[in-house]
Design a protein around this nucleic acid. Structure first.
Lengths: 139, 139
DNA sequence: CTACACCTTCCATCCCAGGGGAAGGTCAAG
DNA sequence: CTTGACCTTCCCCTGGGATGGAAGGTGTAG
């Protein structure tokens, strides 16, 4: 794969040129080579790195976390333990929310089944959410 | 429950006074009564409304969505259909992410089991995340 | 009376992850 | 040579959700 311009790279990976320059500006992408006229000129490794960034981001990591991971790697360390920790945390958070959302969804289905019975006489804001108060862990 | 100051309300519900004033400023909380000296003076209903807001927020609704829900209610309509829609969307989004996270977590466990075999010779950034590239739906 | 904590408004700032758009340079086609 | 699509830097804006701090008023304990 020959060197590509920022626009080609962006299009290939489905991101904007703005994002790429932004990632570079915060040190997430290294400064690329330039053509004599000053155009950014990306190699294959840059595409991989960007793909890595987008994947990690999609998995819920912040750009700062991703930067740390890349820094680990640049120091020749294995980032996997760190990634594992971050992801474990992500998974735990998500699991917690999911449990709540599932409870709520079940509640929701129940409410939908007898939707007609909840009318103007429902003095609260929303039975669905008020019910969630009761489900609140520790409330 | 007698009228309380903003500080007491905040402490009771575990939010900051700043947040309460902010919610009021964006129309999420009504303007409360004031003492002759101008102190905000909250009634029981305000605590409920704030609790409602925090609960809805915790469940993933944005302040705008919450505002809409409250507006529905203030117009005497049942917000539940709307809430149901919003929550269904939330649940769907979350389910999608959860599916990915679960795939990743399983992957993670597998990687942890043979962690020793991934060393400095791992030329990439992080096998965990690189593996996730392959799991990417449609990649 | 004096501390001191708490309240008021208002304006500024933060974080995150970029987006908008101006002013100007470059490259390939026709 | 011109046109149009790309590229460059630069600076400001967005939005969601607050947070900080200054300047000044209030309320209560000692």
């Amino acid at each position: 794969m020959l060197p590509v311009t920022i626009g080609e790279l962006a299009q290939r990976l489905g991101v904007t040129t703005k994002s790429i320059r932004f990632y570079e500006s915060i040190g997430l992408l290294p400064e690329p080579q330039r053509t004599p006229s000053g155009y950014r000129c990306y190699q294959e490794g840059d595409a991989e790195r960007l793909t890595f960034i987008k994947t990690a981001q999609r998995l819920g990591l912040s750009l700062d976390e991703i930067k740390e991971i890349i820094a680990f790697r640049d120091r020749g360390q294995r980032p996997c333990a760190y990634v594992a920790e971050v992801l474990h945390r992500q998974v735990a958070d998500l699991d917690e929310r999911i449990r709540e959302m599932r409870r709520l969804r079940d509640e929701l289905r129940r409410l939908e089944r007898n939707a007609g019975t909840l009318g103007q006489d429902n003095a609260g804001y929303c039975g669905v959410i008020e019910h969630a108060n009761a489900l609140r862990p520790g409330a």
